[in-house]
Design a protein around this nucleic acid. Structure first.
Lengths: 146, 146
DNA sequence: ACATAATAGTTATCATGATAACTATTTAAG
DNA sequence: CTTAAATAGTTATCATGATAACTATTATGT
């Protein structure tokens, strides 16, 4: 997260940049704005998810399984290839989704180390229920940022 | 944090948007890209800071005190007004910076609830030492994102 | 075929974000 | 001037990110 309420002015960045002899002040300013803006949006989105006992990550786990074209389940390791998050963090969120009944485990006959994860009916309906407001939160935020 | 490695294509977003009847697909795609890009950059920056026993927040605490024009100390509550973070989180990071000797406490004679926080010499030199590479990390990342 | 690698999942531990609820002090209201 | 409200800082508890290290199973290379 990036927390600075008032970003440094371009001229302040320019001063730092010339002092340190590193980078380009326009690029740096742009990066700081982006981090700040994204942090605010991520916080809004997280708040929305947590009001539904979810998190950004849990939501994305449901999404990547749902979005798979021909199959209706994925291994944890396959989810991990689609999401840029560490194994233990993924594992914890998957466990939580199993506990709350949004995911179900399916035995994997081809590899006894693994198991497949599929959306339950509750998982599918939760995803469907959550999506519109998710888009609305994002749209609302983006329209403010002009 | 936003973890999806492969963002949905514009047409997938368009489909969701028309299904839910909410938002504008271009805006949503833009927001998803921004969250993803910023998450990656924030992770890089965090990794850089943690290699120096710091964090984004600790760094920003040092920055807002250093950047103050006429005074050389701020109260915790004043820092809180400049940084978009909860009181307890700020308090924890300030405590850690006091422990590691980058900040020092100064009695506040005008308000016995409060105390002022100033950079130590070590704090100042750490900030100076860290800045160039911080800019380099950001610049390098931004130049890749074309 | 068998020792070694790699892979799937898990556990333990830590850092850092949040809110709720607390003490102590200062400010404001009647 | 005294009670109530606001403010400064802190503590407790929880969620969610990370890495390191572990077990069990599968794949690989002589």
């Amino acid at each position: 997260m990036f927390f600075l309420k008032e970003l440094p002015t371009d001229s302040m960045v320019e001063e730092y940049v010339s002092k340190t002899g590193v980078g380009n002040s326009g690029t740096i300013s742009e990066a700081l704005s982006m981090m700040r803006e994204a942090s605010q949006l991520i916080r809004l989105v997280d708040a929305y998810f947590s009001s539904h006992n979810l998190s950004q990550l849990k939501f994305l786990i449901l999404v990547v399984i749902d979005r798979e074209p021909d199959i209706e389940s994925l291994r944890q390791s396959e989810i991990n290839r689609r999401l840029d998050v560490s194994k233990p963090v993924l594992n914890r969120s998957v466990s939580s989704l199993l506990e709350t009944g949004l995911l179900k485990r399916i035995e994997d006959k081809e590899d006894y180390r693994a198991h497949k994860l599929a959306l339950t009916e509750k998982g599918k309906s939760t995803l469907k229920m959550i999506m519109p407001e998710y888009f609305k939160v994002i749209s609302k935020f983006m329209n403010k940022q002009i």
